[in-house]
Each structure stands twice: as C-alpha cells, then as structure tokens.
Amino acid sequence: MQIPENWLIHQDATPLNENDPDMLRVHSIETFGTHDGPGIRMVIFAQGCQFRCLYCANPDTWDVKGGTTKSIDEIVQMAIKEKPYFGKNGGVTVSGGEPTLQRSKLLQLFTKLHAHGINTALDSNGKLLNDEVKALLSETDYLLLDVKHFNDDWHHTLTAVSNQSVLKVAEYRESTGKPMWLRYVLVPGYSDQEEYLHQLGAHFKNYLTIEKIEIQPYHLLGAHKWEAMGLEYKLKDIKPPTAEALQKTAAIFKQYFKEVKIN
C-alpha cells in the first residue's frame, strides 16, 4: 500500500480535544522515562501530531484516530503506583505525538496529578497557543519545548510547518515565569548550521525561565516504523551526529545558555 505524501496532515484534530472528555488517546506509556524531564518519569506518549518531522521516530503517533483510549483516572492511578520512584525530582511527562492536541484533557490530568503531589512536564512542539493551552501550561511544572529549527524555511523543510507558533509559546512561557527546557534535535546537514545555532542562542539568551537546552542527537531508530507504514524515510542516508559535532554544538549553545546537556 502506497500512502500519499501528505497523509493525514489535514486531519481535523478538534475531536481529539473535545470528544470523550475523560479519556486520553494514548500511543504508549513508558514507566521508566529518564530522558524527558528531571528524575524518573512516567512518560505518556499522546496520540496525534500535525508536524511531519523528517526524522520523526514515532510516525505511528500521527493519526489522531490511532492509538488506544485510556481513562484519565486510570492514568492517575498508574502514576500513583509509580510515585515512590519519583523521589524528589521525578513525575509524569506527557510527550507525543503532540500533547497539546488534547489540551483540555491534559489540563484535567495535570490538575489531578498535582492534587496527588505529582510533578508534571509537557514535551511539546509548540504548535498551538490558545487559552486552553495557556491553562494547561499553568498546571505544567516543566515545559520541554522542542525548537526544531530557528530558521523558518529550514523548519518548514524539517517539519512541514512554520516555527512562528513555537517562538510564541516560548515567549508566553517566559511571561509566566515558570521553568522551561529547550530541546533541539541535531540532524547533520539539516539543523547543524552554525549561523542558525547562534541565532537561536541569541534569541533566547535573555530568557530567564530557560533552565537548560538539551541537544537530542538524531537517530534512525524510528526508520523501520516509516517503512512498516509504507512511508518513505527520507533521511535514511543521514548518520547520527558524531561526538565532535555534538560537542561543537554544545560549545555554541554554552555561549548563550546556563546549562547545555547532550541527551
């Protein structure tokens, strides 16, 4: 089966936010997340995404009708069972897919988690910013904001959409004074141009809420999923960044951010 280029890209995501208010559409849950926010985290991969990143490791999260539905209370119960492992730093992270497509439900989830003293983090691509997202961000202890590229054309090439909303989300988060981490996927030949790395740094250098920037080395571990879905994986010849390339990028970011971490 050959699937068209723009498969699902114009899917209407509103039902995801509005139907079944007590159910979250979930791709999978990883109980031992150690790379998506501080400490040990239960990571919920939310279903549905409207970006089309060339390197996406989870294309099976795109379809807003895919995944399975799980009740929010059930997820809260799972988190409570895991709470002893969270220690001082850990908690729950919602990643994706793009979690803000289910913002009203996540607001409910995060509010309940907070009622149980569980820390919340949201890993978002910054596609959306409206009142519902703002309400969700107010219940979000850590915003992990993916900045895929600073240059809008390149952002388009990489993700099929513009980065303007991403920068707006960052600006909004800064205005709330609540912590945020930036995440930057380093793809050789696509997102490693020094001038744009510097521009990104310069843009954010005065942001007070950014605790750190994480460099995520591009990897090919999701490529097989594209093939399984009948999609063409366009980056198949791109190798993960070398240790030197990572260090070089880190050195550039260090000029602008107080903490740079290779994730």
Partner: peptide, 24 residues
C-alpha cells in the same frame, strides 16, 4: 544510558529506583 543522560543523572535515578522498589 537508559538510567539517564549524564553520570550524575544515572546515579540519582538508580538511587530513586532502589528507593521506589523497596518502598513498594
């Protein structure tokens, strides 16, 4: 690597695993 990105993260996360498992 699956314990955390940095050596410090790895140590603290392993401590948290042990604290959690034995609290359970």
């Amino acid at each position: 690597k699956s314990l955390g990105a940095t050596p410090t993260d790895q140590t603290l996360n392993l401590v948290a695993v042990l604290d959690g498992y034995f609290a359970k």
